[in-house]
Design a protein around this nucleic acid. Sequence first.
DNA 1: GGCGCGGATGCAACTCGGTTGCGTCTGCCT
DNA 2: AGGCAGACGCAACCGAGTTGCATCCGCGCC
Lengths: 146, 146
Amino acid sequence: MARTSHRTAARAVEAQRRIREAGERVTTPRSAVLAALLAADHALTHHEVEEALAPVTPVDRVTVYRVLDRLVATGLAHRIPGEDRTWRFGANRRGPGGAHAHFTCSGCGRTVCLEETEVPAAVKVPRGFVPQRIELTVQGLCAACR
Amino acid sequence: MARTSHRTAARAVEAQRRIREAGERVTTPRSAVLAALLAADHALTHHEVEEALAPVTPVDRVTVYRVLDRLVATGLAHRIPGEDRTWRFGANRRGPGGAHAHFTCSGCGRTVCLEETEVPAAVKVPRGFVPQRIELTVQGLCAACR
DNA sequence: GGCGCGGATGCAACTCGGTTGCGTCTGCCT
DNA sequence: AGGCAGACGCAACCGAGTTGCATCCGCGCC
Ligand SMILES: [Mn+2]
Ligand SMILES: [Mn+2]
Ligand SMILES: [Zn+2]
Ligand SMILES: [Zn+2]
């Protein structure tokens, strides 16, 4: 438990450092949300973030939405559109621009970032179309649900 | 115009044939919805389907949802999750199981099926994970919006 | 350390894509 | 033609995300 809360504190500091370095104001909700993303082993929904913060640093629903939007806008996190019409958010652990694939488990509904998996650099598109970003999502069963 | 309505009628017949062949009951809403998907040059939202049918064969909002669900379940159409939290639907012109990529235009918001574009057959996933389906979406600008 | 301001938070009300329950209607089999 | 399971229409509902506005507070400045 001492170990755990030590890690938690370290994560909070790390989150604050990242926010400050991005030139953003360091506020309680922002640090708490980013720390939650950094702590998670899978991409979190708005609701999951809210729940994760509730016991220690309750944050208003709307603020969670706004903070996550801002983290995405400043490149500190990324948003993953899901099969179930809800967005999930993951911290950009290795800075912005790291295009990677995602895995969504149809058992537990969790989405994880596949930092290792290559996304094709280019694909064939119809004449006149200009590709900008490629998204690759794998559906299947995670190790736990298999 | 004679040409156009002739094509329209042909499409209605084709839609009915496909529905019957799938072992489903042939109803007015079902034929109309599938015919609309077959006629479209891009994947349609629920709302677009409803609008397309309104002038000739008005169909209740809820019925459109249910018909589209069923077309997907029977393999006559497929559902594409979008960046904007709405689903889009396309007819499965070449039968079910034809995995293909999609292109979403950030200008007009339209999504088109890239029937030509290969989806990688397999990707690297973490140990113990079982991939089932791979989805590839390209974001960019379409020829009209460029 | 205190001051002031612009941006951030909290709360309430709202939008909209999609769902559910239920009574009526109809495609299809006999 | 007759009967029934399944489809349709309508109304109420749900939940993710948004908007407007008053209050608060991080941070640069003294
Ligand atoms: Mn990710
Ligand atoms: Mn398609
Ligand atoms: Zn799982
Ligand atoms: Zn376009």
